[in-house]
Design a protein around this nucleic acid. Structure first.
Lengths: 228, 228
DNA sequence: GCAAAAGTGTTTATGTTACACCCATGT
DNA sequence: ACATGGGTGTAACATAAACACTTTTGC
């Protein structure tokens, strides 16, 4: 069947808010724009959606192309379409957010053409388009989500210590948490598998754990609800 | 600045999942399609986004045009863009969901050209496009949202009884709730204003309440978090 | 032996659940 | 007077919060 709509069409893009955690604060991955408009400004990785690809695919492709990231946790965030958000004309953007583990982080100041760099979420430079707003919305979503879904693990190495996990929660939620209560509560879910592996370094070694995705999925199917 | 992108563009539409509550179960407002494809099928109200209008505006306009609804609670849900979801070609749809009060309900079997009718969410007819999926996603979102944001009030008359409110929660959450505990908890928020107005009818009159939106907004600004 | 981070239990306060009877009205 | 839905409190239980010291390592 031929495609016969006569309506004018907005351009359609995807943009990705990529979150990372370095042990200290939450970071966002930005690229320097190599094209007008906003040439040279920091911006979210993203670009035009191809005619035959799904929206998620478009987001993954752009991430790959502009930041060399693949295999990340990715979720649709919100669609931004206010007329005027792009100086060139009507552009509607489907925004996504991604969570990447430290071991997946591309080096800041990557050799590639499109320079990508991590920026602390609370000290962002001026950004192209409405990307500041998009990041604000992504942060809000992440803050809400982390409390009732175990997405935090996507920001940590596969093997992590309870202290790392706690620091992550503290960084995202923006408040301190009692160590004993935190550990008690998380271990009570019985979703963290203790490993026979420990950190080494200047101080007492800490036990490493991994998150039991399989068990979590099974529990969810049986109506289980993770909460903080 | 002229608009110079050379990329092919998907068509862009909005679709609205309109929820209503009649005291029994949760309902969705559907229209019969007056055009191909899916002529005569039930579908969500929706249509093409104009070049100069915001996405929310487009959703409100389509609601007005197809169901005569205005002034409803409206929120963006998700953007559906899988190639093939529309037999005519690539169409990306930004889905919204709306909550309407019983006193705003358009009469089922409206006189207008586009026939609109309420359908119980758990007994939907076959729908056009991927609208069944869109409704499923909207329901999921509503179920999640009602527990931590006081959106339920948008589905009730401005003045309502505690029993109505409880029935609504039971309908959406799909389980029964203890009457005394429910009332205790809700009244403890101190966000329901008791009125000097009562229902009349066959039995003991029930006190009417209204939700204190102002106070809620103020509390939220001070970090308050409504939950169940 | 000291600095630095890891690890561990108990008590108290708070919130959640379970549960049964009387009340006001229309017919 | 009876049928129907409206309205109310308390005790048991479970969950969350507060809180301080010992352990292990590298230097």
């Amino acid at each position: 069947m031929p495609f016969t709509y006569e309506y004018p069409r907005p351009a359609l893009t995807v943009d990705c808010v990529v979150f990372g955690f370095d042990g200290g604060g939450l970071q966002v991955l930005l690229i320097r724009r190599a094209l007008e408009p906003f040439l040279g400004s920091w911006a979210l990785p993203g670009g035009f959606v191809d005619m035959e690809e799904d929206l998620d695919q478009a987001a993954r492709r752009e991430l790959q192309e502009e930041t060399h990231l693949s295999q990340v946790y990715l979720e649709q965030l919100f669609t931004f379409g206010t007329p005027g958000r792009d100086p060139r004309g009507r552009v509607v953007s489907v925004a996504y957010y991604a969570l990447v583990r430290p071991d997946q982080h591309p080096a800041t100041g990557d050799s590639d053409a499109s320079e990508a760099a991590w920026h602390p979420v609370d000290q962002l430079p001026p950004l192209a388009f409405d990307h500041t707003q998009i990041i604000a919305k992504a942060l809000e979503r992440l803050r809400g989500k982390i409390r009732y879904q175990p997405v935090g693990f996507e920001l940590l190495p596969k093997h992590f210590t309870l202290t790392q996990l706690q620091s992550l929660y503290e960084a995202i939620l923006g408040r301190t948490i009692d160590k004993r209560n935190f550990r008690k509560k998380l271990l009570a879910f019985d979703l963290l598998i203790p490993l026979d592996k420990f950190t080494s370094g200047a101080h007492r070694p800490a036990r490493l754990y991994r998150f039991d995705h399989r068990k979590y999925d099974t529990l969810v199917r049986h109506g289980f609800h993770f909460e903080l």
